[in-house]
Design a protein around this nucleic acid. Structure first.
Lengths: 338, 338
DNA sequence: TTTATCTACGTAAACGTTTGCAGAGGTGAG
DNA sequence: CTCACCTCTGCAAACGTTTACGTAGATAAA
């Protein structure tokens, strides 16, 4: 059985390939009658245009790439949800790449993507990244890029983030008002602007309460959860005065719980914990975890919208299109006053 | 600046396009010296082959599609992790599509995919699907398909699943041995073989303990979590004799917790709960949730391996290549003896 | 009548790659 | 010297689309 492509349709209808192609695109250059005939046969034979031929010819792939550290994380999975939603509504396909917070992988991936495979890119930078040379190369090579959450300041494009400074400030203030005086701050990387912002909020709140900023209370975690639990356990053991933890990442909040369990520290009596998290079951934890929750789904949607709009209009993305959404603080048991 | 493609390289090197193409593929038909020259320039100019031209010509896209109900679910996000891992190692790209357990969307998506956009497909069927006509059409249209977890028996291909009958049996038995006598079973769809298997295991365990199978204790949930919580709350209110819940899906286990909280039912004292789940924080819940945990990451990896092997060898996938991995039961507080 | 305009279709080139075939030049055997 | 063979390279077609351009016929304006 011959494949069902334009040529096949054209032959069966005694038309030229051009006319068939135009008919399927509802071109005004084709008579209504012919359009009918073409569409009827196309439906009957189940014609599906060859995406690669079309992409090649038009230099448009109707595909976007999503490059993120991990997917097994509520923030990112919700973001993907939003991205996929918007993409689908606009007839775009979504390619997914995971960096596992590894710099090397991120470099590899960005290289694949310079081939025009995608029309645009949504990205959240790996915490392990130090320089952004690979991103600049990628940026120069064409596709529109929008960063979300973990942004890269070095590129002249739009970012979709949350009010990280304010959130860091409020989280810390929340702990202070609950009575904490020695607050540890856990984060993944000091290189990312997102981490710096939260850190600055943390410092501002401390200062406002007349407390010194103690560098040794800042812990930078790795990718591996067990390793992080280990690190946090060590920190808590060696610094028994710590009475509050501000975790900048969901995973570190969980590891903190584990560490406290290990050491038999009572939450919130002897130590209070607040963390960035999109964990749906935060309220069901023992004890319920106080969270700063980012609107992950909306972030994904907005980032995708900015990207697709730029692609469709063939206009470059301007930093002025950046968006800042608000996170929300849900006070729960883990930071209740002793 | 002219684009950097084969033509450009050929011109600068005074070679033909054909020779350049062959050189980059390490063809034995090109002299070592020429290969060197070509590769050097390609590197220098940052040449990236046009994926669409290549796909068009070779009729191979080096891309697989992943069609799943949702991504905000630990089982699927871990599976994606495994899939992406294997795909990347083999130079494949991963397109992702979410059905949100909606039949219509699944039909739409399968239609996109009949265009030769992907070389193969990994799929977990939407719980809302009733007939599989769309899948049969898709199957007929070419690409290799491997189902995982939520399989479609109607197609003559390989499935990667877990020991669902056994798991359903063991979960129920676990509750029975903990003292439960009125066990509700929550699931998403009775149409999927996976649901039927677990249900049969549930029934077998009941029978073994001389207990009758009570249809009214079986609850079929929807997509929306709040709605499910509502349903479960109603069930528990109207049937106070229920002293055990076997949730066939992570989300239903969580909703069960919510329902118990709403009603002030003590877990595990008055009611015990076990659920299929890949929730990392299961042990941190109040109380810690007894789970049957599927090896989601391995499932993703194995499914991807079977698929890619078939693609590379251009051989059809046989049902005999199906794999059954083992789930593990983690007994925790939520099913402890009163 | 001629000329212009419009409609509906066809011709052919182009997108960038891969690959069958041919051929030029060199080497070795008879 | 001839013939065969091997090495390296080029020519050109093909993959399935899209689209600039051309054109035949019809209609309308002059």
């Amino acid at each position: 059985m011959p494949p069902v492509n334009l040529k096949r349709l054209a032959q069966e209808l005694n038309l030229s390939i051009a006319t068939v192609s135009r008919a399927l695109q509802d071109s005004h250059e084709v008579s209504a009658q012919t359009k009918e005939r073409v569409k009827a046969l196309a439906d009957a034979l189940g014609y599906q245009p060859n995406a690669y031929a079309s992409s090649l010819r038009r230099n448009i792939s109707k595909t976007i790439g999503v490059v993120i550290p991990e997917v097994n994380n509520h923030f990112f999975s919700l973001a993907i949800n939003g991205i996929e939603e918007v993409a689908r509504q606009n007839g775009y396909h979504v390619l997914i790449y995971l960096t596992h917070d590894d710099y090397e992988r991120e470099v590899d991936i960005t290289q694949y993507l310079t081939g025009g495979r995608v029309d645009g890119l949504l990205m959240s930078v790996a915490s392990g990244s130090q320089d952004f040379g690979h991103l600049q190369k990628l940026y120069a090579s064409k596709p529109a890029i929008v960063f979300f959450d973990r942004v890269c300041d070095a590129l002249n494009t739009a970012n979709v983030t949350t009010n990280d400074y304010e959130s860091g400030y409020l989280a810390t203030k929340h702990l202070l008002e609950a009575g904490c005086r020695h607050i540890a701050h856990l984060l993944l990387s000091g290189n990312l602007s997102i981490g710096r912002m939260r850190m600055q909020g943390y410092q501002a709140a401390l200062q406002e309460h007349g407390l010194p900023f103690d560098e040794t209370l800042v812990l930078t975690g790795y990718g591996d959860d067990e390793q992080n639990t280990e690190l946090i356990t060590d920190l808590l053991r060696s610094r028994p005065e710590i009475d509050g933890i501000f975790a900048s990442v969901e995973r570190l909040a969980i590891s903190s719980y584990q560490a406290c369990h290990n050491l038999g520290l009572a939450i919130p009596e002897t130590i209070k914990i607040i963390g960035f998290s999109n964990l749906g079951v935060a309220s069901l934890l023992a004890p319920a975890l106080t969270t700063i929750t980012q609107p992950a789904y909306e972030i994904g949607k907005e980032a995708a919208r900015i990207l697709l709009r730029a692609i469709e209009k063939k206009k470059p993305i301007l930093p002025s299109q950046s968006l800042t959404l608000k996170s929300e603080l849900f006070a729960r048991k883990s930071t209740a006053r002793g």
